[in-house]
Amino acid sequence: MDAMVRELSYAQAIQEAMAIAMDMDERVFLMGEDIGVYGGAFQVTGDLVERYGTERVIDTPISELGGAGVAVGAAVTGMRPIFEFQFSDFATLAMEQIVNQAAKMRFMLGGEVSVPVVMRFPAGSGTGAAAQHSQSLEAWLGHVPGLKVIQPATPYDAKGMLLAAVADPDPVMIFEHKLLYKMKGPVPEGYYTVPIGKADIRREGRDLTIVATSIMVHKALDAAATLEAEGIDVEVIDLRTIRPMDKQSVIDSVKKTSRLMCVHEAVKTLGIGAEVSAMIAESEAFDYLDAPIVRLGGAETPIPYNPELEKATVPQVPDIISAARDLVKGVR
């Protein structure tokens, strides 16, 4: 029997996933700053504290390093914590526990433990929160073996990938773009998972592959709709997982379209687009390329406060359209 499908926001989908995880497994609990009665800075935990109590929806002090470490310690000793960072920028305060401890503990101990911790990071710009509350740092963590790093782009994936993350025995870092929290989409009731490590072809096309992450998936789809009217048929791949990356889906797509563009909000230099581009250059798909690879990413600047400047620092739909036209026409 098919589960009932409703329209839920991305934030509601995450909240529902956390509730299902807590219903299914008493080891699952939530930790984070102001996730209790406040409901979380972005109302993702909402009223879960009323349903599950303060012992399973734990407000932490403003102690990102210590809090992350507590989550790691609880995970290696049998619990299944879901730790919410109030903003992904605050990962910088907890890098020690994430990078040196969570990512490496299983390895350093020769497989004697696993670290089934889930960390959630509200990320990205567009809220006017300026330079210290708007970053996209997923590539930082994607560089660390031992971590899994995901970026769901839709409410359906947000729920299914969070449930997959909770079931995963290894540390999973989830980057959630803040502008997606209010986006609505179809979400089935009940339990389901969306696999970590599998990209999704959001739109099939013949002329150009756009590999996008998070909110850029939607911008790429908008651009593709415009480009279609001009006779340019774009394939949009939602990478969904940064580590481990689904290389084969991208390779197969590029072999079909012979053109590749990577689009992400994070700073372009040394970013995920660079990784995807290099991966294609090393693969059998390289011989199929008809044009140089194009990358669109964040400008080489902190995120500014002024709304016009803020928009200008990350790729927008017209930027994608323009770059796609040039790429297909062979301008570059």
């Binding site: 310690g73 526990q97 101990l109 004697e112």
Partner: peptide, 30 residues
Amino acid sequence: ADVAKGNLGANGIVGGGIPIAVGAALSSKM
């Protein structure tokens, strides 16, 4: 480390094990 005997591990980071111990104690309580 000797997880079977309850040693969750030495640590190369000064202070790195302290929050982890608190997490293990949280598990014990929960």
